[in-house]
Amino acid sequence: MTIYMLVAGLVFVLIPVFAFPFSQNIDPISLRVYSQVFVPKEFHIKGVIDDRTDRSPVAFLVRNISSGSQLEIVDLEGGAIPAVENYVFGALPRDQNLRPVKIRIRDLKIIEELADARSGLVEGEVYLDFSFELERGDELVHLLDFQGGVSYKRGVRQVSVIEPVLRKSINNSLKYFNDWIEKESTEDIKLARDVKVKIRDYREDHQDDTVFYNPQRPLSWKDFTGRPRFGNYAASIFASIAYEGNSWIEEGEVIVDIVFKTFMLKSSSWVKGTNNSYGLNHEQRHFDIAKIVMERLKEKVEKLDLQPHNYDRKVSFHYLDAFREMNQMQEQYDRETAHGMNAKAQARWDKFIDEELSGFGVK
């Protein structure tokens, strides 16, 4: 989310021309904390990150009338990033029981020009480009961008105007972020504190091309409707796994509803002529293997330490790992049973598969 804001703060000081024979050096700008800006209830600032492409001093200021367009380059006292960090730490209480937030500074500039040499009028702009990011472990989660600043006018000798204008700009960004996070603290998934996972199997039978695994509904040869392929095999089954996830927020907690699907596709599964129960059992065991792998995946997901910002990535990672495991197990099964032709090996696999399914409470 990106916010663009421009706040105009106008300071008019008109000074006669004869008041400007003198030249001055401009000292580094010292950001001062006079009082706390507000008390955050949802976050504390953990630190400031320098992400500027231009890390030169931040201010380009009019020194005197005779300098004209030649601006003096001035930095914040102690350096831009340390100065901003020290200011923010002083301006806001830091309750470390609240969410840790870091400010990423992409741009920070003060640029002036001599608007009227006769009156010594200087016009200036403060530019801010801040990003607010939530710290979660070793990761930073992007929350909000703020791009804005303040316009001002001053007399050429009134450099003291600059610091409060800069301070006002920084305060504007902090207040805007505070308003946003207070509003979104129970609505934005990135701000949720906990994740609750609900896991269930999809078993509905719509009498279409897909058969979802159900221990009460074993396969039959009628489920193999695909066109037979050339080769030495009498039958083949397309069995696989998938999942769907849906999430929502309830009182600041992410509720994740995950539906796991173990299925076979009729049109991609085939049999040559009429086959026997032994051959059907071999194909059923391919389906069972997919179910075993899915049950293992469900166990892993139930034990995961999921966070609101990465739960989907973690579940997806383990799903892909399970998919590879399923393919390897299917290949091993066919290799050791010689595609069902080795009866002794088939019997060993039948026993292993039944024990696995029984352990998961499937049979």
Rank of each mutant, 00 (worst) to 15 (best):
L143P: 04
L143M: 11
L143D: 04
L143R: 08
L143Q: 05
L144Q: 02
L144E: 00
L144A: 00
L144K: 03
D145C: 03
D145T: 12
D145Q: 05
F146L: 06
F146K: 00
F146Q: 05
F146P: 03
F146H: 08
Q147Y: 07
Q147F: 00
Q147W: 05
G149N: 05
G149H: 14
G149Q: 10
V150L: 05
S151P: 00
S151M: 12
S151T: 15
Y152C: 06
Y152M: 08
K153Y: 11
K153L: 06
R154V: 03
G155W: 00
G155D: 09
V156F: 09
V156L: 08
V156C: 12
V156E: 08
V156G: 05
R157T: 09
R157P: 02
R157V: 06
R157D: 10
R157S: 06
Q158T: 13
Q158M: 07
V159M: 04
V159E: 02
V159F: 05
V159Y: 06
V159S: 06
V159A: 02
S160K: 04
S160F: 05
S160W: 01
V161C: 11
V161T: 07
V161F: 15
I162T: 13
P164Q: 14
P164W: 15
P164R: 15
P164V: 15
V165W: 01
L166C: 04
L166S: 07
R167K: 14
R167Q: 10
R167T: 12
K168V: 05
K168H: 01
K168F: 00
K168I: 07
K168N: 10
S169N: 06
S169E: 10
I170V: 15
I170Y: 09
I170N: 10
N171I: 11
N171T: 13
N171S: 11
N171Y: 00
N172K: 08
